[in-house]
Amino acid sequence: MSPTDASADAGTAPVTDAGTCTNPGPAERRTAFDAGPSAADADPVRGSDADPAWGSDSEDTLDLRLPDEFLALIANEAADTGEERCGEERRGEHGMAGPGSAARARGDLLDRVADWGPVVTPVGVFHLVPVQAEQDLPLISRWMNDPTVAEFWQLSGSRSLAADHVHAQLAGDGRSVPCLGVLDGTPMSYWEIYRADLDPVARHYPARPHDTGIHLLIGAVTDRGRGLGSALLRAVADLALDKRPACARVIAEPAMRNTPSVSAFLSAGFRFSAEVDLPDKRAALMVRDRCLRDLM
C-alpha cells in the first residue's frame, strides 16, 4: 500500500459526497478471488460509502498469493483471444519496453495497462508507459528525493529504496503496474495503477470487485500547481474505466494533510467519500464512479 499522490497540483473544489451508485453486471459479481476483506482487522470507515454489512464474516484473501491455477487460466484465456504478444511492448515516443515477459506469463489483472495507449488531454498527449526498471529507476529515484515528494512517499535516499519498491511490483502477480507518465513525449510523472480490491488497502474501506486504484507523483516542481495534476488524474481515471469494463470505480487514498493532492482529485471529478485510518496515514478516500463520470 504505497503513499499516494505526493505532488498533484492544487485545485479548488468543494468537498462533496455524491453518494454511491450501483453498476449491475460483471463488476458486481464476486468470485473466490475477488471476495472482499474480512472485518476482523479492518479499521473504522467514516463516510457515505460505509457498508453496514461490512462486519459480516468472509474469507480474507488479500495477502494470499493468487493460486497458480488461476494465474494460468488468465494467461491461457489471454492467449486464446489473441491478447498475448511475444517480446516486449513498444513504448511510444519514449521508446522504452513494456513489462517483463515473466509478469505477462502470470496473467494480467489490470487489462493490459501497456495497451491503454496515448490519450489527448487539455494539457497535451498523455501516455502511461509501464516502467522498465534499469532504464527508468534513475529518474524515479531523483523524483523520490524531491523534498515535497519524499514527505509523502518516504522513498528518499539511495536509489535502492526506490528500486526495491518498483521491483516488488514488477516481480509480483500483476495486481500493481508502475508507470511513467509521458506528456507530449517527455516523462514527467510516476504512477501506480493497482487492483485496490486485491490490495491491503481493501481492509480499510468497503472494497468492490475490480476497484482500480491510482498513486501519483508529479516529478518536476515547475509542473506542479498549474492544473496538470487534475487534468491527468481525470484522463487516467477515465482510461481505467474505458479499458476495464468490469471496473465500476477508480479510487485513491491521498493523505488528508496533503491538501493540494486532495484538491486535485476533487477537480478531476473524484468525490470525497470518507476519512480512513491506514497503517501509515490518515487518508481521504477519493472515488470516481463510472455512473457519475459524465456529471463530475
Rank of each mutant, 00 (worst) to 15 (best):
C86S: 14
E89C: 13
E93P: 10
A105F: 09
R106T: 10
D108M: 04
L110G: 03
R112F: 15
V113C: 00
A114M: 09
D115L: 12
D115R: 15
G117E: 05
G117H: 03
P122I: 05
V123L: 09
G124V: 08
V125P: 06
F126A: 11
F126D: 02
H127M: 04
H127N: 09
L128D: 02
L128R: 04
V129C: 11
V131N: 03
A133W: 14
E134I: 08
L137M: 13
I140R: 01
I140H: 02
S141K: 01
R142N: 11
W143I: 00
D146K: 03
T148A: 13
V149I: 15
A150M: 01
F152T: 09
S156F: 01
G157F: 00
R159K: 12
R159N: 08
A168F: 10
A168L: 11
Q169H: 12
G172C: 07
S176V: 12
S176H: 08
S176L: 09
S176D: 13
P178Y: 04
C179R: 04
V182F: 05
L183M: 03
D184R: 08
D184I: 09
G185M: 07
Y194K: 11
Y194G: 13
R195P: 06
R195Y: 09
R195S: 14
A196V: 13
A196Q: 12
P200H: 10
P200W: 11
V201W: 06
P206V: 07
